[in-house]
Nucleic acid binder design. Structure first.
Lengths: 161, 161
DNA sequence: GGCTCAAGTGTTATGAGATAACATCACGTG
DNA sequence: CACGTGATGTTATCTCATAACACTTGAGCC
């Protein structure tokens, strides 16, 4: 997982039971929205949930096959596109990585805190989206989507470093 | 320049005199900070100012030579790194593009409104940076840099479309 | 059941964005 | 003017992402 500094980092992924429940919930949400949770989509979401942090697309590609065989890039990118569209995952533009959504909502704006030390990502949904919305309104802009990402050190790494 | 829709867009770049003044001011700032405004750095900043909107790195590379000869990628990427470090330009992560800074400040956090229609970018410095900072503090994060980008339609394109 | 068509997937190839590594050059300092 | 640091030139390569096209699957319809 993330290793950009010298101290040890805790694992952050969910355990098998939690992943199973999250996948079932995601599938239910898809059915409800008239979307299909197909095999590659489920597999990519599973990999994101296992990681519990932001993951690079090509890491997902490498881990995709249960037998260690990599996927073809479009397989994973198409799944990511779907997961993003349905709000089950998000892209973190500042590091070109992807993360499972941690809120049970459907498609929604998101903001993130990213630890540059251990790679942890924390989704902090609403607060500052509103401030940006105000700035946009003041400037006459009609806002459609936002990218809000803060980089720094998480509590654990502030202590450890 | 930006053309993602069917209606016409105004040119946004500065005129020659304004660019000259902006370059002189940037150079003065560099000297003041003990940095060197070298030829490739000045050239890349000039290209950004001429564009007046976010530009892709490889467009800068293509436009770099006065005789139409492209630069080598590291030439431009190194200049961009310097301009970003000194606060003379910013990277817009959500579209992998770069833009000249529009505030006379030294290195500083920035936020952007980006028109997906005409490509206009507006720097709206502080407002929601503070909200994100608050969220970070609440979560125990020590924030070091932020990426805050809003996408939508600028006033002109809202009318034109 | 069998048609049909839209959505999804597999596959190949390529486009776009960014950096590593190393040789050489320019400049301020002692 | 020797020296060392920072900047540049150059080659090669790496990472990120998508275009294009053939094939498959599944829900709705008759």
């Amino acid at each position: 997982m993330g290793s950009h500094c010298d101290h040890a980092h805790d694992e952050t992924g969910l355990d098998a039971g939690e992943i199973g429940r999250a996948l079932a919930a995601a599938e239910a949400r898809c059915v409800q929205q008239g979307e299909r949770m197909t095999a590659p989509r489920r597999r990519v979401l599973e990999l994101l949930l296992q990681a519990g942090e932001a993951v690079k697309a090509y890491d997902l590609i490498a881990r995709y096959g249960l037998d260690g065989v990599a996927a073809k890039p479009p397989t994973v990118y198409r799944a990511l596109e779907f997961l993003e569209k349905t709000g089950l995952a998000h892209r973190i533009a500042s590091i070109s990585a992807y993360v499972a959504c941690s809120v049970g909502d459907r498609a929604h704006a998101a903001a993130f805190l990213i630890c540059d030390c251990c790679g942890a990502t924390e989704e902090v949904t609403p607060p500052e989206g509103e401030a940006l919305q105000q700035a946009a309104t003041a400037a006459g802009y009609a806002l459609e989507r936002t990218t809000i990402e803060g980089h720094g050190r998480c509590p654990a790494c502030r202590v450890a470093a």
